[in-house]
Design a protein around this nucleic acid. Structure first.
Lengths: 151, 151
DNA sequence: TATTTATTGAGAATACTTTTTAATAACTCC
DNA sequence: GGAGTTATTAAAAAGTATTCTCAATAAATA
């Protein structure tokens, strides 16, 4: 949960016998420049790249997203849609969580230092190396509470 | 996040114009009788039912799981595998969270009253009706930290 | 600079989940 | 309790997200 630059990413990859590529650098940059609170699906990222004139294949995108999530660079979000979303994994004090309406998928971000503390304390206690910690709240938003429940 | 019985489930369904069915009752029972800490995928549930001699189709299973998750009866868990898992949504003090190794998917359960409090306070503040609140910690377990990182 | 081999792109393949449809059966109203 | 309405089911087809395969490419290393 620290900040990455192209060169720190390269070092970490090389340390493990992996390689830095233009594709990985581009994808990292996109997530770093994303407006706060935005997150992309694989498809979103693909389209975003196309608009920039960058041509990175979908397979590479899926591979890179998974790789970066496993490195702790990106967070993999489950926002109630049928695909995952990704966002940059920012450290304290930018770290945040999500409140999701299970009916309309409307999502609200919120912060909580205590949750972050509990996350790091828990992983430490078990000897785990912390990558990300997200509190996901599933609930029904005010609008959907009023609606005549359509499933 | 309260306990359900066949009849309380029926009332809640009927209130919304839906129906109680033997399939829904059976599935509720299975989750209620599941040993603590166990969770099932759609496929797992299907096999479980087959072994019991119950024949419920996969489509019904998928429909029922989603329905019960949206009602707050079940929790939908994302445990790093390529499919969702479900478990009964137990209230305090049985409510718990998950610490997951992003490499081998080994999962540890842990409890935290404060997280539950933060969850209910946050949803209340936004006017949301709370269904479930899960802290998911992504990390690398001790064994995988030692292993020569295979992706 | 040559060598090794991780990575890429393209498309095929897989896996999970949803949809469609006709038949069934739960609920409601009389 | 019975008839009518319509939510629900099973089965199969369809859809969608994601992973895999493989030959070509290009990082890293020596």
């Amino acid at each position: 949960m620290s900040m990455y630059t192209a060169s720190s990413l390269k070092s970490e990859l090389n340390d493990r016998g992996w390689r830095m590529t233009p594709q990985r650098e581009t994808i990292l940059q996109i997530f770093q420049n994303l407006p706060k609170g935005e997150h992309l699906s694989a498809e979103d990222l693909y389209n975003h790249l196309q608009q920039m004139g960058e041509k990175i294949s979908l397979s590479t995108i899926y591979r890179t997203l998974k790789l970066m999530a496993r490195m702790g660079i990106l967070r993999e979000l489950e926002l109630g849609e049928d695909h995952k979303h990704y966002e940059i994994n920012q450290p304290y004090p930018y770290h945040h969580h999500h409140l999701i309406c299970v009916k309309c998928n409307k999502t609200i971000e919120f912060k909580s230092d205590s949750v972050l503390k509990i996350g790091s304390k828990t992983s430490q206690k078990e000897g785990y190396h912390l990558l990300d910690c997200q509190l996901t709240i599933h609930a029904v938003c005010p609008a959907c509470q009023r609606a005549i429940s359509p499933l």
